[in-house]
């Protein structure tokens, strides 16, 4: 591995300054489960690695019915899926946070790192989009917020300008008759990168028969995780039944633009988007119905 300077600031202000000083030659270090391997593989040449685990704002973690879910960028996955409040209110976050890597990886990996790493296969990203999460960003010019679906701009690329850090992702409070879910397809049962994945949320009306609104996002089938607007819109006002699910899945397949690689073919991936979207919507609807 190349040489670099390691710093571990304890305030957000210092961290931003340390990042900004080196511009593109600085990288943040959260759990390290992406960045250290990428550095070892020579993907980046950097001068400074800024460990962001000692910054209070990035360690915020709170979950409630009234205020929603705040996940600081340095909060490890296990904290998310072990929280009984998250299990109760945001089961889709449990779905995805608990299948990143194995138990060892989950002890280090963060949702923030997964999002900033901006892999098309990033397993927490479809859920964050489906759950309408907002990314809170701090930089030399202060703080700003972006919807998660706009955060990733290409494979390994994100919205962050030089010197900027992700502070947290914030999921709005869940309303009654709301449900979300996440699934991925991998050839093994664990320890794999998704051939395709899908996160979806649905808001049902009071009768729980009609869908008021929905959000579907699919991964590993394009340069970034894709927010499937048409598929999502197709469900607004639709009956919560198989026909609507089928239609949404077909629309999601249209949104996919995968490539052939060692993990799967174009045909297989488009097919899987259909399968996964249907399965995920069924679970989301059933959760929304409180089943």
């Amino acid at each position: 591995m190349q040489e670099f300077e390691y710093v571990a600031p304890t305030s957000l202000e210092d961290a931003v300054k340390l990042m900004a000083e080196k511009g593109p030659k600085a990288k943040a270090l959260a759990g390290g489960t992406d960045i250290l391997i990428q550095l070892r593989g020579g993907r980046y040449q950097i001068d400074r690695l800024v460990d962001v685990k000692n910054i209070p704002e990035l360690n915020q973690f709170s979950c409630s019915q009234s205020d929603g879910l705040t996940i600081g960028a340095s909060v490890q996955n296990y904290k998310i899926y072990e929280s009984s409040e998250v299990q109760r209110l945001y089961p889709a976050m449990v779905d995805c946070a608990s299948l990143v890597g194995g138990i060892q990886v989950q002890g280090r990996a963060t949702v923030g790192g997964n999002l900033c790493n901006a892999a098309p296969s990033g397993d927490t990203i479809p859920t964050l989009i489906a759950e309408s999460a907002q990314a809170l960003i701090a930089g030399p010019n202060g703080q700003r917020t972006v919807p998660v679906e706009e955060f990733c701009t290409g494979p390994g690329r994100n919205q962050l300008a030089d010197g900027e850090l992700l502070v947290s992702v914030n999921l709005p409070p869940v309303k009654p008759n709301y449900g979300a879910a996440f699934l991925r397809f991998i050839p093994r049962n664990e320890m794999d990168i998704a051939v395709a994945n899908c996160g979806a949320s649905v808001q049902l009306d009071e009768s729980r028969q009609k869908i008021v609104s929905a959000k579907i996002a699919i991964g590993s089938v394009g340069p970034t995780v894709i927010y499937c607007i048409e598929a999502s819109n197709s469900l607004a006002g639709a009956d919560a039944n198989e026909a609507s699910i089928e239609a949404a899945a077909a629309a999601a397949q249209k949104a996919a633009s995968p490539i052939n690689d060692m993990r799967g073919t174009v045909e297989q991936r488009i097919h899987l988007v259909g399968v996964l979207t249907k399965r995920v919507l069924r679970i989301a609807i059933s959760r929304a119905k409180g089943e």
Binding site: G102, P187, R188, N189, E190, M191, D261, M262, R263
Partner: peptide
């Protein structure tokens, strides 16, 4: 060899 790692050269895990 595009999959020269244990991530992508998929050997069975205990869960498989």
């Amino acid at each position: 060899m595009a999959n020269a790692s244990f991530l992508d050269y998929r050997m069975p895990t205990s869960l498989d």
